[in-house]
Amino acid sequence: MDQRAGTLSIETSRNLLLRRLAPHDRDLLRPHLEPCVLKSRQILHHAKLPMQHVYFIESGLVSVSARISRDRWVEVWLIGSEGMTGIPIVLGDDAEPPLRRIVQVGGTALRLPSEIMRQAMAESASLRRLLSLYVQVVLLQTSQSGACNSHHTLKERLCRWLLLARDGLQDNSLPLTHSVLARLLGVRRPSVTSCLGVLEDMGAIRNTRGMVTITDAHRLEDATCDCHRIITREQRRLLAD
């Protein structure tokens, strides 16, 4: 086993949901959680196929993406150390989930068989309550991001995405290329490159090959819309650690 995954456990987890578990819910899940490494571009779940595992993200970023044409996918929400990949299981509709889950930034996770998740939810009202709150967080992120994409500038949308990625990674260094950012946002690469240049001139980020580093989060927050603040405020309200 990779050393990065070998030291993971529910007791020392960075994952917000696992940290929020009640003691008896930890006991339900602990024997079945398997540490694993997440590799960049690894597909954790293919669209329209049964979901075999739930991944509680410890480090790294996972995109949940919707298909908009035969060969094009656009991100609809982002999962970091605050969340997990098993929303369809929580909602009881995991036979053919329509969205794809793909690793954008490599890291680690604790993996749980889907059947164990179903059994644990059936046994524990407190676990169902916690996961229902997480579903509300995801609904808020997707609806707010949709409104943002419709009404705000690309620069504001990019700032919102970078801030959410920083929150999920718990790191200011984001190992992402301009092409990846363009694909996630559903725009052309030159447009992303231009916006990153503006943000770098402002002193908000440092832009190097394959890496965007947030150097001044306050300036980045000033350059974005209210959407990041709304999303993070509701996450704190619903999932206070």
Rank of each mutant, 00 (worst) to 15 (best):
L28I: 12
Q144R: 14
L112F: 05
D222R: 15
R101W: 06
L130M: 03
V198A: 12
W73V: 04
H32T: 05
H228Q: 04
M211D: 06
H151I: 09
S81D: 09
G92P: 12
E115R: 15
E58C: 10
S145T: 14
V54Y: 12
L49Q: 13
C159M: 00
R229E: 00
S179P: 01
L131T: 11
W77D: 07
R70P: 03
H151T: 12
V180K: 14
S126C: 01
Y134E: 12
V198M: 07
T85E: 11
Q144D: 04
R14Y: 00
I230K: 09
V54A: 13
V180E: 15
R67T: 07
V54G: 06
C227P: 00
R118A: 01
L239C: 02
C148G: 11
A109L: 01
G60A: 04
L184M: 14
T208V: 09
H178M: 06
T85N: 06
R14W: 00
L154N: 06
R129N: 14
H45I: 00
D171M: 08
K155F: 04
M51P: 07
D25L: 08
G86A: 00
S65L: 15
R70W: 03
V62Q: 13
D93I: 08
Q170T: 05
Q42Y: 00
L130F: 02
A204S: 14
S9I: 01
E34P: 05
L17M: 10
R26V: 09
T224Q: 01
R72H: 15
C225D: 14
H53M: 05
L169H: 02
L169F: 03
L139A: 09
R160G: 06
P190K: 05
V103E: 03
N207R: 11
V76D: 00
L133A: 13
L238Q: 07
R219D: 02
W161Q: 15
H46V: 01
L238C: 04
D2P: 04
L239K: 11
V76L: 03
S114L: 07
E156L: 01
N172L: 02
M51T: 10
G197H: 11
H178P: 07
A66Y: 09
I57R: 00
L8N: 03
R4L: 12
E96M: 09
L112I: 02
R209C: 04
